[in-house]
């Protein structure tokens, strides 16, 4: 589904990603862990097409197409979804109207017929239930006055509505209490299927107790320095990230 080869990227002249390789297949959940400043969120931003990131080398192929050639909306319509670390508040944009517009544009791109009001409402209700998203929040302005947990749950609700093939969760666990974490994870687990894939970016192992990954990668200084299965996450939890730095200095 996704092939990242030798990806180099910089932001404001500073090199952040320095030759990153990653392959994600349908049905897989990949966790990307690493210390602060390793480039985890930058990877998410580059994949979603944030404009201030400049790719200097390498390629990203998504379902056979060059992802880096596409603008952010085309990536979304092709099936890439980024759950933001800091979902933005947009007063005056109703949550549900925004989703209706987004879904409309995505369906039009995929040559699917537009949903009528009733079908949309039905879908919305179904997905609200699936990810336990409060109906009261659905009709409010986009994220306005939402708590941290409510914002993250809204990201998962949007994910459920838009049904992307590749979802990138950028530190979705940050700022969540244990109940919110459980609800968010439950939502993600229900949405997992043979057809879609997840990249879960996290600093802590905690989230991975709820969303069990197929693969765990350690991102350090712009590269994936170690890959393994879910046991790697436990090892990281135990040892922290300092050993990476030692390893780095040993090789210099």
């Amino acid at each position: 589904m996704l092939i990242i080869k030798n990806l180099h990227a910089q932001v404001e002249g500073k090199q952040i990603l320095k030759g990153l390789n990653l392959t994600v297949n349908a049905g897989e959940v990949h966790a990307i862990m690493g210390p602060n400043g390793a480039g985890k969120s930058s990877l998410a931003s580059v994949l979603a097409g944030r404009e201030n990131y400049e790719v200097t080398e390498g390629e990203v192929i998504f379902e056979g197409k060059d992802l880096l050639e596409m603008n952010p909306e085309t990536r979304a319509r092709e099936g890439v979804f980024l759950a933001f670390q800091y979902p933005i508040e947009i007063p005056g944009v109703s949550n549900i109207n925004f989703l209706k517009t987004a879904l409309g544009e995505i369906r039009a791109y995929r040559n699917l017929p537009a949903l009528d009001a009733k079908e949309f409402l039905q879908l919305s209700r179904e997905k609200q239930k699936l990810v336990e998203f409060d109906a009261k929040l659905v009709n409010r302005s986009l994220n306005e006055g939402f708590s941290g947990g409510e914002k993250k749950r809204n990201e998962i609700f949007q994910l459920a509505m838009l049904e992307p093939s590749l979802s990138i969760l950028d530190e979705t666990d940050s700022g969540l209490d244990i109940d919110a974490l459980r609800i968010v994870s439950k939502g993600v687990n229900k949405l997992r299927s043979e057809k879609n894939a997840f990249i879960i970016i996290t600093h802590y192992q905690r989230l991975l107790e709820y969303i069990v990954p197929d693969f765990v990668h350690v991102l350090y200084d712009g590269r994936i320095v170690k890959s393994g299965t879910k046991e790697l996450a436990l090892e990281l939890e135990e040892k922290g990230y300092d050993w990476l730095k030692e390893k780095e200095s040993a090789t210099v």
């Binding site: 952010p72 979304a76 979804f81 947009i90 005056g92 944009v93 517009t101 544009e105």
Partner: peptide
């Protein structure tokens, strides 16, 4: 805000119109 809306599949013009309405 513009990036957020585009990352959900809204075209640039639609996203701007939505922000002006907001």
């Amino acid at each position: 805000a513009l990036f957020y809306l585009r990352a959900r599949g809204l075209g640039e013009a639609t996203a701007k119109a939505l922000l002006i309405n907001a």
